[in-house]
Design a protein around this nucleic acid. Structure first.
Lengths: 345, 345
DNA sequence: CTGAAAGCGCTAACAG
DNA sequence: CTGTTAGCGCTTTCAG
């Protein structure tokens, strides 16, 4: 068995197998166009000398790269890895490679990543994009694009509808006697945030509760911790956070302020990414990020096969996951606004 | 401003600017070879018609792709995202795109991913590879390769030396009076696992403690939970887990068995990926995954510039992070092996 | 400083 | 069924 020196090319296989380059190419991409024997011989030789088609050259020639790009706001946010994992794993099965981009919650960065990826991929998945709509359209114009948790008309999108889970959370709190709650919001450019905020307000109105909004621009543990002071000042007896990270941070912050959960305040998160890892175990809204990732990739693959795929809007619903951070309104905290103690976030 | 129809190519710029294709190319890659005025004009035209060099074509021509691959065993394991984030962010600054692969802890899958990436990247980073050494060498032969948490002679590698942190953990437990501990191991192909295991045994011997080893093949919460029974059966009073996920799982499992931490058993994790999110807050060994990710990428970039970079072996040390899951040996649990109650993992 | 020409490795008509 | 001939879009000698 000859040990190949340089990376073997199609010509070498052609020569050894005694066929044209075209035949070698066909043996790999359209074997049914060749005689069985020929294919076998070619593949044999290729195997021997360790030839494997060069994806870059192929891409240049065909215009198809066999790559997709996946862009998220922050890989380190536990909401995304399962989604990425799912998409990557599915891509794998179709022999696609995936580029990963993390924008750091920065629209400009997101824009830059997309441009960089554009000519190396057959399509892209944009998760929780913070980009203005016209930029999204711009990129969708260059390449097939599917959105996750972002609702832009005419662009294929898969949406996790946390609205219903959030509504359940609000009425659950209402049942427990809470009359005044705070919604601790996330990134202002986030579709999920707008959706959740809207759901909280709507349900609260229906239950005749008052809701105050406090905004944590970045959905991190730390931002949640810093918001605890401001939350206390509102005199609310329960808080619904944009996501679990924020909720967990709030719990930490509250605890530093000497307040107990759910004794003094009830808290509910969103996305269920922490499992029962907090203490007390966090009541939260389910997420379906794995399915969302699969669905998004699957839509993209469909698109590659069947041309365009219209105005898909794939909605997945959610529900409240009851654990241990909610309880009946504490009587000691019902009277109204507490004394300002410290500046919040 | 003319709205460009199809994706503009170099020829169009050349035509409009009234120069050769070669000049356009040079305006982008070697501006200093051209007259200032020419460069300005070309870049202006390019801007106008929205031309941007095609990375695929460039790659085919130059052999340099401007891409790197990053392969990890499991994106969903919280140890990896910060590392990925760090590497990606650094790559970004040098205008590199990164392919992400998640092998699902499966060597065969890892192999497949690497082959798929090979001809589309200038180099790869293999994190916590589960591949046999000869396969790693094989891939390193095809492309510049840097390893993280895998120690193969002659291949550039950055190693997080959890050995020292683990040693501190053992002596800390010894100080607390523990005489019998268990090491809950991780993936058998994991270099980190071998390193940690060795450190535990060595330090324990020095402190005249006895250590039993239980193996959880996969480092997940669930595997840890299932191991709790087996751990109890050993009669040990403390457990050191391969990583935080396992440790957290053990805590959950122990709690289901009615055992309290650190009252009945002390537990220490490794990697510090959970922060203080467990309850009680987990005592663990620090990690430096962000630096590891940066360092690995940085080595790769160095390699691209300066040719080969010898036998680099970059070691980063760690230390014990004391929190709340360790305490003095419980007297009630010192007598020896408890009754078998349930089968462990 | 700039143009002409020859590919990078592969695929895709178009002929036989 | 298989070979021939052009490119894909860019970079890179080599001349001038």
């Amino acid at each position: 068995m000859p040990i190949p020196r340089a990376k073997p090319t199609i010509s070498q296989v052609a020569e050894v197998a005694g066929v044209s380059r075209a035949s070698v190419s066909r043996a790999f991409t359209n074997p049914h166009m060749l005689g069985e024997a020929t294919v076998a011989r070619i593949l044999g030789v290729a195997e021997d000398i360790g030839y494997v088609p060069n994806r870059t050259a192929r891409a240049l020639s065909t215009g198809r790269t066999g790559n997709v790009a996946l862009v998220v706001p922050d890989i380190a946010n536990p909401f995304f890895p399962p989604l990425i994992q799912a998409a990557q794993s599915l891509a794998d099965k179709s022999d696609f490679c995936v580029f990963l981009g993390s924008s750091g919650e920065d629209p400009a960065q997101e824009d830059k990543l997309l441009s960089r990826f554009a000519d190396q991929v057959d399509g892209m998945i944009l998760v929780s994009s913070r980009l203005p709509e016209d930029r999204i359209r711009h990129h969708a114009d260059a390449r097939p694009l599917v959105l996750v948790n972002r609702d832009v008309n005419g662009i294929p999108r898969v949406l996790i509808d946390s609205g219903v889970g959030v509504a359940q959370a609000v009425s659950h709190l209402a049942d427990l006697g809470h009359r005044r709650i705070v919604y601790l919001g996330g990134p202002s450019q986030s579709w999920s945030n707008r959706q959740r905020s809207a759901a909280v307000h709507k349900s609260a109105r229906a239950a005749e509760m008052v809701v105050e909004t406090i905004n944590a621009l970045v959905p991190t543990h730390e931002a949640g911790r810093q918001a605890a002071g401001a939350i206390r000042e509102t005199g609310a007896t329960a808080v619904i956070a944009f996501d679990d990270l924020l909720a967990q941070g709030v719990m930490a912050g509250l605890s530093e302020l000497g307040l107990s959960v759910p004794g003094d305040l009830s808290v509910v998160g969103c996305d269920d990414v922490l499992g029962a890892a907090t203490y007390p175990a966090l009541t939260t809204v389910s997420n379906r990020s794995v399915e969302a990732g699969e669905q998004a990739l699957s839509l993209l693959l469909d698109h590659f096969r069947s041309g365009a795929l219209g105005d898909v809007r794939f909605l997945m619903d959610t529900h409240l996951v009851l654990r241990a951070t909610t309880a009946a309104r504490s009587l000691g905290r019902q009277a109204g606004v507490a004394q300002p103690v410290r500046k919040g976030a």
